[in-house]
Design a protein around this nucleic acid. Sequence first.
DNA 1: CGCCAGGCGGCTA
DNA 2: TAGCCGCATGGC
Length: 319
Amino acid sequence: MDYKEMEILEDGIALKEVKHFHPQQIFECGQCFRWTSQNMEKDHYLGIVEGKVLEVKLVENDVYLLGITKEDFQSFFRDYFDLSRDYGKIKGALRKDPLLKKAVSFGFGIRILRQDPFETLISFILSSNNLIPKIREGIRRISEKYGQSIQYKGETYEAFPTPEALSRATEEELRELGLGYRAAYIEKTAKLVYKASHLKKEIEKRALTPEEREILSYDLTYISALPEEECLKALERFPGVGIKVADCVMLFSMGKTGAFPVDVWVKKAMVYFYGTEPKSLPKMRSFAKEKFGSLAGFSQQYLFYYAREKKIRIPEEKK
DNA sequence: CGCCAGGCGGCTA
DNA sequence: TAGCCGCATGGC
């Protein structure tokens, strides 16, 4: 447990003496798109999560979670912030690698959030060959059009839509939101996820056709429970999902901490720290997975954050 | 204007 | 299986 005790406040809760928790590092290490810094502060963020708006504020060693109740925390947000995990132990193990030591010290307050699989899947489909600000804007527009609105401190925010709501979107509507060619992938994926979850409920009422039984395997709860390798294969069946997107979904929403997504930043970090062959992404991935095992996902976050914040570069000919 | 961004799908050899 | 190309979009 990475905090000592919880205190109930009028507008939220406070966690006392929290370890390994830094808002900027958690929200800027590439795992999420719906958290925004408030007043340009490194320790104050506002997020839209699970149909709720909340603020996170770090004051010395205490973390304030505003906008949620004690029940919200106990039933959901403790797991969302991965607070039951001992990051000291993970960092200790990763620091044994002298090259990773610098990246771990730099991202000392990183935690891997346990996010919603559907939102994560759609978000990372949108991330392919795209820019982070544009990904955030796309997700905001999707939520604005298909999500439930939420009132918080006199402002209106929109939750990310449910599979059912997004499954009603047409490809053309999604294109109008500026999602580009990814619109078709998102449209098809949303429909598959919704159909699968819907058919899962139908089983009790009637016999399914062979085609319907086939669609059941797109159920995200089912996929989430699969072992890592099978989980990866299952996710890759969604249109717009390759190895990188599948690794992100597994790591950021399905608790598969051995996943190691290799994107342009991690690629740079691997060349910079380990001198690995820059052209071979699959080799980089297997190198890290063998080296770090079930901690590969954490190492990926420290490497990504270091590479992106430091804007590290690698020689031109190595691209 | 060309280039690129948290890749993927499809086609070729 | 590896290697290449096109792809929507927008900022530089």
